[in-house]
């Protein structure tokens, strides 16, 4: 029997207390484009993952370790996991 394949997305964002100069520069460019009213613009990362795992619990456990230990740096970033079964988790 083939090992199930899970689709997931890990969303990494800068912690609210961390300055985002690239986001600020992009926000300023939005105004130059003529789009008014952009009060806040923060740039993060969306990481798409396909993962083989025996069951959803194992998939979740591996993805959480991936988020915690590699994809995000907890000193400056928060992250959130979207697993394709529709559930969400993160911190």
């Amino acid at each position: 029997m083939p090992v199930p394949l899970y689709q997931a997305r890990v969303l990494v964002s800068l912690r609210p207390s961390v300055l985002d100069p690239a986001g600020e520069a992009t926000r300023a460019a939005a105004a130059r484009l003529g789009i008014e009213g952009v009060r806040r613009l923060r740039i993060g990362k969306a990481i798409e993952v396909e993962l083989e795992a025996p069951d959803p619990a194992a998939a979740r456990e591996r993805l959480e370790r991936l988020g915690d230990r590699l994809l995000a740096n907890p000193v400056i970033e928060d992250w959130r996991l979207e697993l394709q079964d529709g559930s969400e988790e993160g911190r």
Partner: peptide, 11 residues
């Protein structure tokens, strides 16, 4: 070492 290095304030 603690902390992290991030993008320069003025880009």
């Amino acid at each position: 070492l603690p902390g992290a290095l991030t993008r320069n304030r003025d880009l």
